[in-house]
Design a protein around this nucleic acid. Sequence first.
DNA 1: ATTATTTAGATGCAAGTGCATATATAAGTC
DNA 2: GACTTATATATGCACTTGCATCTAAATAAT
Lengths: 154, 154
Amino acid sequence: MTVTADACPGSCTEVAERAWVQLIRAHRSALCSVEKALRAAELPPLEWYDVLLELEREGPLRSRDLQERLLLAQYNLSRLVDRMEAEGLIERTRCSDDARCQWIRTTTAGDALRQRMWPVYADAIRTAVESRLTKPQAAQLGELLARLSNCPKA
Amino acid sequence: MTVTADACPGSCTEVAERAWVQLIRAHRSALCSVEKALRAAELPPLEWYDVLLELEREGPLRSRDLQERLLLAQYNLSRLVDRMEAEGLIERTRCSDDARCQWIRTTTAGDALRQRMWPVYADAIRTAVESRLTKPQAAQLGELLARLSNCPKA
DNA sequence: ATTATTTAGATGCAAGTGCATATATAAGTC
DNA sequence: GACTTATATATGCACTTGCATCTAAATAAT
């Protein structure tokens, strides 16, 4: 079991292990190149985009929900929201019915940033995925991966 | 394009995008549970295992090679090796022929740690992968992912 | 109503990460 | 051989992450 590519060509590595290893490798390699592309374009990290898109698609969300959707840790989202709020990309407002909650919504600046990020992001995805897999392969990959991230309860 | 699970059921999301999103999600969710399992067992992070295994399988390696195999950034590996050396798990020795290089090798303690980590790691992988995919599915997933991490040149 | 429990979110601190750059050595050029 | 360029690794600094814990508000229990 390694994170290495050439893990005993043949059968010394169990299939599940191999899938796992390749998952880590593919993620490292793909994510790294996407992040680099964003930085090169002087754009913020990927997560910022995810937050903005999620808010744009779902409308204002509570921290809790955003956190769940993005699979982020509570404290990480909290601080991510801090940073993005400081940049004027999103806003927090207290819920009226539950004073513990808050609604998070995008601002105009947030929407604008999201739109500037998309082309760079999309291009990076094309390089990372589209250029290496046929359409049916990509579709199947998506299917298989989805099973891994689905909550057991779901 | 989101990191969210329910991205427009149907066709509004391109297949490559979906694969990408699911890659991120699957990785987050799986890695997170593995790391938690390791911490719960008071074991060091995953990478430590990867380094140790790689060294055990390939024998002493130069930093550069280890870095490439594990897809780690140079400065990250440098510091990872610092930490592991400080714990007595690996050793650095200068190459005789090229004074810039160094050989990295495991120690007895390193081997012992690796062996203690494996059961926990293996179990976490089983939970994360084996329980969610059939054997052929896992095999195919491994195949598809491998294409994503293969260097273009390879 | 009063207290205990749970839930939403924030935060101090230690550790890890990325960037840019430094150091040292090797290789190539003139 | 002095001078530039490339390679292997380390490091200062700012920022991010994880852990544990804290506060505040809502629910449940008595």
